[in-house]
Design a protein around this nucleic acid. Structure first.
Lengths: 215, 215
DNA sequence: GATGATATTGAGTGTGCCACCAATAAGCAA
DNA sequence: TTGCTTATTGGTGGCACACTCAATATCATC
């Protein structure tokens, strides 16, 4: 005789409710994967009925795409802020790599892997993935370009260098789960190394170099 | 009144039937993803009843893991044969990179992405993934080591160099789907470049260098 | 305090999947 | 041919999910 007592309804402004749903969905996506972003799951999370989620998102896939977009968008602003107030480009880039080595970034990597796979079967999500890919790339590329303009960096092709950094980051992220295996510094530092070489920086300019070094 | 006429039964030797099932599952996994490897789907593929698949694989997850293992194992033998009869290590490695640039490798990359993601929720699959990861790594590493022994390659740490190559391959593979975007040669050739640099080889030793080059 | 717009519920439909089990027939061996 | 092993079937139950829709309660507005 638990709950047939007619639920208490809490009515919220559409915009607020929608934001609430998206936030919950993004958290679930980041923590448990995009396939756990179901009407039922998110409804439970917010203690409402599944029908309510349907009311805001015509299709479950829309919600999934929105969850992915929200999660990756928020992380992007943390890692590569649009407005760079103080500090040199080198410092900003170094900060980026420092954060990219942290555990929070691993969760993000997992989400990307998740989305890359699901993209094949979900057109709406796929569009969101493509959008976010260019967002991340352009954000990083603009940092590189500004560094070049300021004379901090030196590269033949900022676009190519940006892509090279991203490829390495993705490659490292792919194994984010396999943290049981020992990862040598020369591997863990690959992204930094590629950046330093590609941007004409001194070794160690973008991140600390440990004792035993490669090459 | 189509098919209530009692199906014709075709009885096969257990080993043969099992192999048939695994092959079909591997094909589906490679072509449509591991989540399409269901009892029903594979049964349809072979024109048998789902119960039969259950008879050979106690759990659906076992079948999925087996499908992944079969697919990646077969590809490994094609790309990096255990027995290297003729040719130098350099030639074998160059051949590997040539194949790794082909469309067939993209399908394999997708499968890996797929498995990386699913590993979290499927212990049996996870075990298979770990096993295959070391299989690929050791196979590549042994090629590197033999090259070093023969004096073809030169590296401080074969293990590290191997990992670096794999990281780049994974990074490139992550974007295997996004073939709409233009990929500059300096990016497409990254794996080869990392290998050439890490193994002390001349530029172009492991793959053709196009007209416009980077750095 | 009454009223109307609508956010929210509850209930129901349909699908796809895994897992279990008893009955059946295919093919090998005696 | 006969008998036996077992590969294969058919059917059942249960779970989780997406989607629909009429009914209802809530809040803002007057």
């Amino acid at each position: 005789m638990a709950s047939s007592v007619q639920r208490k309804r809490i009515r919220k402004a559409p915009a607020a409710r929608r934001a609430e749903i998206v936030d919950a969905a993004a958290a679930v996506a980041l923590g448990e994967g995009l396939e756990c972003v179901t009407l039922q799951r998110i409804a439970d999370e917010l203690d409402v009925r599944p029908g309510l989620i349907s009311h805001y998102f015509g299709t479950a896939e829309d919600l999934v795409a929105e969850a992915f977009g929200a999660a990756t968008g928020a992380e992007l602003d943390v890692l590569l802020p649009e407005e760079r107030t103080g500090g040199t480009c080198t410092e900003h880039l170094a900060r980026f790599f420092a954060l990219a080595a942290g555990p929070e970034f691993d969760r993000l990597s997992r989400l990307w892997i998740n989305a890359w796979h699901l993209r094949g079967s979900r057109p709406v999500l796929n569009e969101r993935v493509l959008e976010r890919e260019t967002a991340w790339r352009t954000r990083l590329e603009s940092l590189v370009r500004e560094g070049v303009a300021r004379g901090e960096f030196r590269t033949d092709d900022p676009y190519v260098t940006t892509l090279q950094i991203i490829v390495v980051l993705d490659g490292l992220g792919a194994h984010a789960n396999t943290d049981t295996s020992y990862r040598p510094e020369a591997v863990a530092r690959m992204a930094v190394t590629v950046a330093e070489q590609g941007l004409g920086l001194a070794r160690g300019a973008l991140g600390p170099v440990g004792s035993a070094a490669s090459e």
